[in-house]
Design a protein around this nucleic acid. Structure first.
Lengths: 208, 208
DNA sequence: GCATAAACCGTCAGCTCTGATTGTTTTTGG
DNA sequence: CCAAAAACAATCAGAGCTGACGGTTTATGC
């Protein structure tokens, strides 16, 4: 679609390097996340990822020289994906007339119960015994945490310590709840607990 | 101390098979847990465990023919260790004059923040993508859950649904909080949150 | 005691995973 | 159009892990 430099007629659509690079890397990183979700951290081998991405060994190693590079890049990939999205989405929902705290809690639970979060958990547990990974993932966690805090502040207009802690506790509760889903897949039960949490959160915020 | 069958004098203390077996297996299982804590699930190889236990390859494979057998046995080991202990311990502490709910929450946090719980988490996450392991670990979780529920019921005399759910929520909160320790090792911060939870729990129980 | 079985030992073959290497195609800059 | 660089391809050697195997020691039942 875009002629750069050369004469008049561009016969076929050449894909620029930068774009090819981006596409291939994305394919590989998506495959990594997918594998983390389905096979877990130990099952996510370089071969497994390569096959999922339909990528040759050479191409893969060209972009990510080692398995560690791949996994670390995967967490950065997650960071980009889940980055600012939260603040925007929550504002949108409130604008549609949702009750702020209910909406907040519901959105968080959607996030924690999303299959994508399994990948985060796999990486998190692996990060415990892997300093490099831990450093990257901490960035992710902190970033997401801040985004959530801001989203919340923007919606109830409270920046005090108690409000912050209330959100923090909410996140911990959600994480613990999310992990229970390893054993039990009873969505309605979880939904019930999440609803109870709304009341809890209101109390934590000193509301009634 | 006990002569079985043979004549009168038992010259030297022969170690009976059953005892040897128990000792060796325990050594191997302890080494497995230890390795899970230090090296994580993927790092817990059969060689690693064998070395930690100071055990030959043959002996190891005699008792646990495969790595999966070892890991599954390790969760059963955990189950035995952490079995009934909770009910007893909590009663003891209350008897010493501890305020029931505070004591309960403190004890739970001690449990979740114990290094041993890292092993549980490693197994839990691995169990998500491993059906055999999941089945065994579910047994562990359920058993522990029941033990905690009973301990709690015995101490406040409530068996209603709300009380049960309050405890359940407490466990989820603790689990999520425990995982945060992968990134931050700020014990006093966690202690503060745990203390706040005590208030939460009282509210959940309809106390004031 | 003695045969049997269980616990224990050390080595090895087979497999898988990783990352290195060499070669080919495609894009870019001049 | 051409040289250089980047993307892609395929094969391969090395390392680590698993589980099998044959052999040794120690306890047990008769």
């Amino acid at each position: 679609m875009k002629n750069t430099g050369t004469g008049a007629a561009s016969k076929r659509a050449r894909v620029p390097q930068a774009e090819r690079r981006r596409i291939t890397r994305t394919k590989l990183l998506d495959a990594t996340i997918e594998s983390l979700i389905e096979k877990g951290y130990p099952g996510t081998t370089t071969v497994e990822v390569g096959e999922r991405a339909g990528m040759s060994r050479g191409a893969q190693l060209h972009h990510f020289p080692s398995r560690a590079d791949l996994l670390i890049a995967a967490t950065e990939h997650l960071t980009r994906e889940r980055g600012k999205e939260f603040e925007v989405e929550i504002k949108a929902r409130i604008a549609e007339g949702g009750e702020p705290i209910d909406t907040m809690v519901d959105m968080l639970w959607e996030m924690f119960s999303d299959p994508l979060y399994w990948a985060v958990i796999e990486l998190m547990v692996a990060a415990r015994t892997d300093a490099d990974l831990r450093e990257k993932l901490e960035r992710f966690e902190r970033g997401l945490g801040l985004s959530i805090q801001k989203g919340f502040q923007g919606l109830v207009g409270r920046t005090d310590r108690d409000a912050k802690i209330a959100i923090e506790m909410t996140l911990y509760f959600m994480r613990g709840l999310a992990m229970e889903r390893i054993f039990r897949q009873n969505d309605s039960h979880y939904k019930g607990l999440v609803n109870r949490w709304k009341t809890q959160l209101r109390m934590l915020l000193g509301d009634s």
